[in-house]
Computed example of a mutant assay.
Amino acid sequence: MTAEADPSDPRRTSVPRPPKPPKRSRIGDLSMRVVYRVLAVAVVLVVAAAAVVAALVFSGTSDRPGEVSSGQVAAPPAATPSPGSSPVSASPSVSPSASASVSASTTPEASASPSPSTLEGVARDRSAVVAAFADPRVPELPRDKKLARLYGKAHHKGKRVLKDRRSGVWLARLSKPWKIFGASPFSTKQVLPKVKGAPVRAMVVSCPVPIQAQRHAKDTALLAARWTLNHHPEDSRISWLASQPIKKGWLLTYKVKYKVKGKARFSVAAVAVTSSSASRPAMVFVTIPDVQRPYWRDVNTVVSSIKPK
């Protein structure tokens, strides 16, 4: 028989059980803190990827140079002044007399509208005309008045014609001492010999209008006349002689007053604009200084010979 141990026996000792290991998460042996950090990083990466995809979808084709995204319209380029023209800003306040002139230039009987073939690029507002009347060099337009016969003798033999195919207009080819000269920047050019001491050379030129065509030919002629001051001495001023309709257009005749070495001088000039087969109206411009007054009659000859084609 086996002897039972006496509980009071000092030699009998109890052995304690070992402690249970700490609980671990189900994801291997990683602690929960590490798991949370990994999940947070994953969420950030997913959000960033979604933002990139959305940006690419909404950008459309706007990432291509020179293109705009759908729904946007590029603003039209600002209008640029014609070569050699002096910029004059439209004054916010225009005198009553100037306003009256602006209104008078649009009356049905005084305005010849361009043909449908020349309406492309026509100004849609009258800001340029208002600016022209605000220019101190350009007075109010006179009432319609035909050009009188000017002093001198006509220099035109027979039916000699100069054809400006670029502008779509024919005009008289004047005889000697007039001669054909280098046309640039115009389409055609006829000149008289230079006079010593004269700041202006007599010339007859034709070309498409160098300014933006207006809805009414009279307004276009006004802006063209103002533009011709670039071919006269600085600070030249206009004094009107005649204003009249011509076939498919308008004619303005005027004096251009200026000073040479402190002495008052002037030229007789005319500008005619007319619609033609070309995409823009044609302009014929003639100017003859007072030192060559025997040739003033050629102004009548030229303007009466203009034929749009």
Rank of each mutant, 00 (worst) to 15 (best):
V52K: 05
L30P: 01
A55F: 08
R37C: 05
S59L: 10
G66I: 00
A40W: 07
V38L: 13
A74K: 08
L39S: 13
V68N: 07
G71W: 00
V88M: 03
V73Y: 01
D63E: 13
T80I: 08
V35E: 04
A74N: 03
A75F: 07
L30K: 09
Q72H: 11
V43N: 06
V73T: 12
P77E: 04
P87E: 00
G28R: 03
V46T: 13
V68A: 12
R37N: 09
V43H: 03
Q72L: 12
D29N: 15
A78G: 07
T80N: 02
A78D: 02
S82P: 08
V68P: 00
V73Q: 07
S59V: 09
A75W: 02
S69R: 06
A51T: 14
V34L: 13
T61G: 05
V47E: 03
S70V: 10
A54P: 01
R64K: 14
E67G: 05
S86L: 11
G84H: 02
L45E: 05
A50W: 05
A79H: 07
D29G: 15
I27T: 13
G28C: 04
S86G: 06
M32K: 12
V41R: 10
L45K: 06
R37F: 05
S85W: 01
A51W: 07
V43A: 13
D63H: 15
T80L: 11
A74L: 07
A75Y: 08
R64H: 11
A48C: 11
V73L: 05
A74I: 08
V47R: 02
A55G: 10
A79K: 08
V35Q: 14
I27W: 10
T80Y: 01
T61W: 04
V35H: 03
G84N: 02
L30S: 07
S82K: 01
P76Y: 01
A55L: 12
F58Y: 08
D29Y: 09
A75G: 04
P76F: 01
D63P: 05
M32A: 13
V88E: 02
T61Q: 10
L30A: 06
V35K: 08
L45G: 12
V43Q: 06
A54E: 01
A51L: 11
A51F: 09
A75K: 15
I27L: 15
R26G: 13
V41G: 12
A50R: 08
S82I: 01
V52F: 05
P76N: 02
V44G: 05
E67M: 09
V52M: 04
G66Q: 00
Q72Y: 13
V57E: 04
R26I: 15
D63N: 13
A55E: 04
A55T: 10
V46L: 13
L56T: 10
G66F: 00
A42W: 11
A74G: 06
V68I: 15
S62M: 06
Y36D: 14
F58E: 07
L39W: 08
S82W: 03
S69M: 03
A48L: 15
L39I: 09
F58A: 04
S62W: 04
